[in-house]
Each structure stands twice: as structure tokens, then as C-alpha cells.
Design a protein around this nucleic acid. Structure first.
Lengths: 378, 378
DNA sequence: ATACTAATTGAATCACCTC
DNA sequence: CGAGGTGATTCAATTAGTA
């Protein structure tokens, strides 16, 4: 154990938890983690650079420029350089983790596959991958891909054989209307009053995470009094939520600017009373069911005819969930509007399918789907 | 091209698509893909095995077998073997893919991170990761983890610079009630009548995917008549959906048992009519109509005034199809950009003509021209 | 103050054709 | 093959501005 035989500072931090607990440590994550005592941390939450590799500028349809994450800390020369960085901090993280500790790492498709593979290579044992579905993600402005509407978190134990890690199954289930908590979570992105701003009103950090996300992470996998380490502390969301929930935090951050914001933020946090440290689960969103789901579910066949309640117009259903009159194909709403010469139309109530002599509104068919979805957040 | 100089079978399959198209090829996926002509496939859908204990599927680079064992070192060994297997089939897949082709790979947290990292290492360029959220996933019986309620698909182009891959943005958006399709999709798992059973009533394949999932994959990223390859064909979901949607399929499968089921299944599929399976037309694909055509058609008179929707600026139409403010004449786009102080502007949507008190966008006039052209051509 | 409308913004790997 | 012109493209929330 390199640590025990090293400098007096290291010995002192090991002997006196107050010297390194509930504090932000300035410096590089690897060096600072190496200075912490091994087997000392219950949970790690890590939000490492995503290595976005953005090329040119991107403008919205109104020609305004998208504020890209172009900070120096997100730039790597190559995948190899990113992998080396990833392995280095994961190794240092594993050393400070208790044998029954767990680690969360969040990322996007740009980096999460490399991170996940490195975690497996280093001996971490993946317990779940958890998808953060954003209620309000940024659109895809050029229409060249699917809207990138989620990020991925990997939750892993230190070792394959660690069986005594903390998972508060019952509180997760209770918080989720007595249905076990799924691996896909729905939260808004961090904005509004929660989003930290600098003196000029600009966002203090480009990638601040919502507190609700961190709260569910900590409520699911830590106990009150546990030690939570965040090696990419930023503006301190992990620390703020940990303090509020009665957990200890350890933050590591390189940028003075972020540290300053985080210190003030955490100082203002009032810990909840012990008995009220419970899950705050967002209310279930209303289920939106797109028309294509009716086709996919077989409730409406491709090629079937839709008609309005007066049987004045008919349109034909296509496999991709559009409907067509002749070669004019678009959504149920657009076609409904077009035949009536209107700007808008609620296709759900306008269009019907024939069932024998009678007509059934496709809105009624949608109800069938909604009922079958049951507890799943749409 | 190694292929062209190889055996006569290979030459014949290259020369005659009917010898390898809409067929199931029995054998190992790598060997069978190597026997297909390069640059011949539009889209690949791959559902590779991810049971790390499946020794039979895993071979070292030298093709020697790996013993599946479960202590830590051998776990590492089997990761190595799994990576070698993954790289081998991905390389073979990349060779048969057209330059603007795309590939879908589905997996769970057991394997998807290794697969994704390998794809990036081999030069594939990730376009999206798409989450399949299951409406009815298997519960976590021991209550030691979150319910594993999703799987992950990676969608990638063959090369970083491939910009002309197929993505039916407008189809996806129209099918989703005119909101762009997100990266998280909600579908039930494959069960009930869709789930194929053997003579004893047991499921014919352990990981049969729902047809609705494949339908959205193919409707989003292929055109009618495209060639879809599935190197882990199983019971042929990809083939059945491809045939139904008017796409060609190529299946590769090792097990006779699965091939038999798949053949019968696909034979029973009735293709939808052509008009039901076309993608919604995108504006990008529409015939280009230059502004001067509106002048030539008499829809806009030389000397007429154009104005923006707020009536802030006006420009005068000239007989040559340019527009002018004072002596400053240029295209509808250049002048639109100039008055707004922007780099670019879509003059079609920016400029309007006065019709009495109201304004009509010149884009609407263009539609008139396009409609009349369509009548001539169609 | 209140209600409505307009503007802003968020981890983004975001054209294509012709000359 | 590179330069330059044409022209396609956004969802949910918050915040600012206006009546």
C-alpha cells in the first residue's frame, strides 16, 4: 500500500477524517484521489469529460448559434488518450472505494462505451446501466439524426463478488408507487432557478446536472452518514445533494472558478432532518402515445382506410405511421388539416376506422394502448 | 479486393444478386460475410450473443477455443475473447457495408460497452444510441438491483465523413405526431402470438426481438428495395419485417433449428403494397425550383415588391430572378441574409408577396409550381 | 400587478449540389 | 477537388418584454 508509507500529509488525512471529508480538494482527480486513504469511500459519482469532438459551429433554424461545450477540459487528442485518462482515474477511484462500495459514472454515446469497457477491464462489476431520459432535451436542429434525448449512467460494484453493497430496494419501490424502480428515469435538465449563473448571468458550468438525478442516485445506493466522492466536482451538485441528504461528500476539482461557486452553494444548503430524508420521485408524466404506436401494436393495419365522422374524406394508413391521400402523405394532423383547408387539426378526434358499419375514433384505440402501458412512464 | 480474386462461388454471388439476396446463409457469421461482395449492403442489423459463458461462440484471434470459467482471471480472459470475436464480425460487416450504409447493434450492459468501443476503434461513427424501453420487462427477483427495463442499440455510419446515409427524418417526425423522434423508444417485449414456439410449446429462440422494434429501425434508416443484412439471424425477425416492408434481406445463421423456423416464418409473410411502405417525402428530396421559375410562370411579376412577414423590409423582383434593394441585386437568399445581418437565410420562407391585405410566402407559390410539375411527371 | 407574446437556451460528434 | 451558392432545420422551459 503505497499510501501508508508516504508523506506525513497523507498519514494525517488518513488519521483525521475531518481533514479530507466535506471539503473540496483542488487539483487533478488522479493525484488527489491517490492522496486519499484507500478503502475509505462508500460511493463514487463521476461525471467525467465526454470527449465530444465537435467540428464546426451549429446554428438553430433561426440562425442563432448553439453554445457548444468547447472547454479545454473536454479536448483529447485521440481515443487512445481518452482511454488512458479513463483508466488512470478509474484505477485511482477503485483504490479509495471500500470493498462493498459502488461507483456511478455518467456519460453519452460519445464516451460511455469506452468508459464501460474500461470499467469491466479493471474489475468493476456492472450492476445496472441506468438511462436518464430528459423531458426537455435539445432538439436535433438539422434533422439528420434522432433527437439525442438521454444520457447513460453505469452503476457498478468494486468487485464481482461484492454482495453487501448498499441498494435501498424498498425505499426505491415505495417511492415508485410500490412498483420496483426501473433502469430508465425521467427528469428535466437542469435549468431555471436551479441553474447556477455567474455575475454576467451566464451559466457557471456548461454541464451542471439536476439535483433530482443525484438525489435518486444517493437515495438508492447510500445510507445516511456514508461518504460520497465526486472526482469531477464542477459546481458541486453531488456535494449539495449529499449534504442535504445527510451524507458526507468529498469533492475534487481543478478550476478555481468552479470551486468558488460550489463552496458558496454547499454552504447555503440546509440538511434535511433525518426522518425526512426520503425519495422525492417526480410525478408520473402523462402518457403521450404517437399514432405510429397504433400501427406497431396492430390496432391499425398498414393499408387500412381512415375516414372522418361524416365519411367525407378517406386516407390510407402507411407502415411508417403517416397517412396518405393519393401520394400526399403526412401525419394524421397535417392530412386532417389539409382536407378541411385548415391550419391545424386534431387528427386523433378527426379520423376514425370502420368497424363493421360503425366508426371508431382512433382516439379510442389510443386509449387501449394507454391502458396497456399501465405503470410505465410514457 | 481480395474477394474478386477468390473462389468461383464468390465471383458468382457477386455477379448475381439473386444467389445471395433474400436468403438465409448457413454458417459462421464472419466466414459467410467474407463470402459476400463488398460494398453491397445498405443496412446491417446485428443482435450478437452476449452471454460471456457461451464458450462455443468465443474464439481467440488464432481461432482456438476459450474455456469459459468464472474466476476473475478467466473473466478477463473471456472479455478478451469476446472482444476478439466482436472485432472479427464488425470488420467483416464493415467490408460488406456500402460507403453510405449504416449499422445497428443491439445489446445490454453485459456487452454493449465493449461492442460500442470496438465500433469506434474500427472507424464506425456513432450517430445515435437508441434505448429500447420495455413496457413489460422481467422483474428483478432478488431486489438487489434496479429492474433491468431497457436494451441499448447503437446506430452508426461506416465512416465519420459519410453524410449521405439514409435517415427518414420526416417519416419519423410525422409518425410521432409531428414531434421529432427521440432516442428512447417504448415497445413491449416479444410475447403472445408473435413469439415463435417449437413443437413442445417452448420458445423457439431465447432472445426473439419484437417486430415493431425492427420495423421502426428499418423505416427510419432504409428505403424500399434496400438490402438489409442480419449476421445473427436467429428466427428471422429482421427478414420477416424487411420482406413485409419491401426491403431485401440477407440472413446468416449457424443453427439448422433456427433456420428452419425462420424460413417458414418468412415464407408466410405477405409484403405490404408499395405505397404503404414508402418514406414520407422530405423537402430535401423534392425537385429544385429556382426562383426565376416563379417569374417565368407569371406567379410573380418583374417589378413586384417582396416583403418579410413583419413587413420590415421590401425588395423588388427583377426579370432575371434576382431581387434588389436599390441597386443592390442578388438572390432571394443573399438579400434576405443581408437585410438581417446574417450569414445565411432561406429566402423561400423569408420573402412574401402582398395579396390584398394579406401576405403569401413565395414558398407557397413554389408549391404551386411543384404540384403542377408533379402532375406532369406522375 | 396581470396576462399575453416574444426571445432565449440546453453535453450536439447535425448539407448538398454545381461549377 | 475546392469554393461558393442554395436552402433545410427545433422542443420544452424559462425569462424578458409589452400591453
Amino acid at each position: 500500500m503505497a499510501y501508508k508509507s508516504s508523506a506525513s500529509l497523507a498519514t494525517s488525512v488518513e488519521n483525521d477524517r475531518s481533514e479530507w471529508l466535506d471539503r473540496i480538494h483542488k487539483g487533478h482527480c488522479v493525484a488527489r484521489m491517490e492522496a486519499l486513504p484507500e478503502n475509505s469511500v462508500d460511493v463514487i459519482f463521476a461525471d467525467p469529460p465526454y470527449n465530444l469532438q465537435l467540428a464546426g459551429d451549429l446554428t438553430r433554424p433561426d440562425q442563432s448559434k448553439v453554445d457548444a461545450v468547447d472547454d479545454a477540459w473536454d479536448q483529447f487528442e485521440s481515443f487512445q488518450a481518452y482511454d488512458a485518462f479513463t483508466r488512470a482515474w478509474l484505477l485511482a477511484a477503485r483504490r479509495v472505494l471500500k470493498p462493498n462500495g459502488t461507483i456511478w459514472v455518467i456519460g453519452s454515446y460519445h464516451n460511455i462505451f469506452r468508459v464501460g469497457a474500461a470499467m469491466q477491464d479493471l474489475g468493476f462489476w456492472i450492476l445496472n446501466d441506468v438511462v436518464w431520459r430528459k423531458t426537455n432535451p435539445m432538439p436535433n436542429f438539422r434533422g439528420r439524426r434522432f433527437q439525442n434525448a438521454h444520457e447513460t449512467m453505469i452503476w457498478a460494484s468494486r468487485d464481482q463478488n461484492a454482495k453487501a453493497y448498499t441498494f435501498n430496494y424498498d425505499s426505491m419501490k415505495a417511492a415508485n408507487d410500490d412498483i420496483q424502480m426501473r433502469s430508465d428515469w425521467l427528469f428535466p435538465i437542469c435549468s431555471g432557478g436551479e441553474r447556477l449563473k455567474d455575475a454576467d448571468g451566464r451559466k457557471a458550468h456548461p454541464t451542471q446536472k439536476p439535483e433530482a438525478l443525484l438525489a435518486r442516485v444517493l437515495l438508492s445506493s447510500t445510507k445516511p452518514g456514508d461518504v460520497v466522492l465526486d472526482p469531477f466536482f464542477g459546481t458541486g451538485t453531488t456535494g449539495a445533494v449529499a449534504k442535504r441528504l445527510g451524507r458526507h461528500y468529498v469533492g475534487i476539482e481543478r478550476e478555481d472558478e468552479y470551486i468558488e461557486v460550489a463552496e458558496a452553494r454547499i454552504a447555503a444548503v440546509e440538511p434535511l432532518e433525518a426522518h425526512s430524508v426520503r425519495a422525492a420521485v417526480s410525478k408520473r408524466a402523462e402518457r403521450r402515445v404517437p399514432f405510429v404506436s397504433l400501427v406497431e401494436a396492430g390496432l391499425v393495419q398498414p393499408g387500412a382506410e381512415l375516414t372522418d365522422s361524416q365519411r367525407r374524406w378517406t386516407a390510407r394508413v402507411r407502415a411508417d405511421g403517416t397517412i396518405a391521400i393519393g401520394d400526399d402523405a403526412a401525419s394524421i394532423h397535417r392530412i386532417g388539416a389539409r382536407v378541411q383547408g385548415l391550419d391545424t387539426c386534431n387528427g386523433w378526434t378527426f379520423w376514425h376506422v370502420r368497424t363493421g358499419e360503425a366508426l371508431t375514433s382512433i382516439d379510442d384505440l389510443r386509449r387501449t394502448i394507454r391502458d396497456s402501458l399501465g405503470a410505465v412512464e410514457a
